Amino acid sequence: MPIIETHVLEGYSDDEKARLSRALTDAALSVVPAKPDAITVMIHEMPRSHYMRGGTHRDPAPARPDAAATVRAYLAAMEARDLDTAKSMLGDGFVMNFPAAPGMSALEELIAWSKPRYAFVKKAYDKVEAFQQGETSVVYTIGTLFGEWLDGTAFDGIRFIDRFELRDGRIVRQDVWNDMAEVKAQA
């Protein structure tokens, strides 16, 4: 079964090295038909003093932020209507696409668009999946929506999937699919 060895400069945290090990395991699983526990990942740390590029000692690049954690923090800020915090997680060219809505690039547009639809909405997560496509981090959140319609009637159990793209640790795209219109039509 696969044995993956990689070398990194010292300076990455244990959490960052664990994230790297999981990512390397997942990469191997995408090609090799093995059980996860049959894949061995070994990370060798190199002291900075033993590494030079261009005749100069180098420091390691900072690790990318955990994309799934960034998305969860963004969604929590949105749910709390902490728009300043949510905006701080957005990158240049940010766009969000919701069912039956034009592409929006400002969080205030989303708030205005949703205002005549429901009093509030929250999410219950079944799972969060994250992976890397080149320089873009992709995160899916999957679960159900619950909240209250404008007339005060509660709703819950509405399926949703959100897909996010992040570059350099910032969210640049959000695509949303849900059954809200279908459920509301039946209410």
Rank of each mutant, 00 (worst) to 15 (best):
F160V: 07
D84P: 00
G91H: 15
K122N: 04
G91F: 10
M96I: 00
V183S: 05
G152K: 14
V139H: 12
D66A: 01
V121N: 08
F120E: 04
Q174N: 11
E129W: 07
V8W: 11
L9Y: 07
H50M: 03
Y74C: 02
A28L: 03
M52G: 07
D59I: 06
E79P: 00
M1H: 13
D14T: 15
A119P: 00
V41E: 05
W113M: 00
A28M: 07
E165D: 12
G147F: 01
Y118P: 00
K115H: 08
M78V: 15
V139Y: 09
L150P: 05
S30N: 14
T56M: 09
T70P: 04
V8Y: 10
A119C: 03
K87C: 03
V32C: 04
Y12N: 10
R163K: 14
I39K: 08
A69Y: 03
F155D: 02
D179Q: 13
R64H: 06
D14M: 08
V71M: 03
D156W: 07
D162H: 15
F98A: 04
V31I: 15
R53A: 01
I39S: 05
V172D: 06
H44W: 06
P47M: 00
S105A: 00
F120N: 09
E109S: 09
A77N: 10
G157V: 03
D26E: 14
A101R: 14
P47E: 04
E109V: 06
G11R: 13
S21C: 04
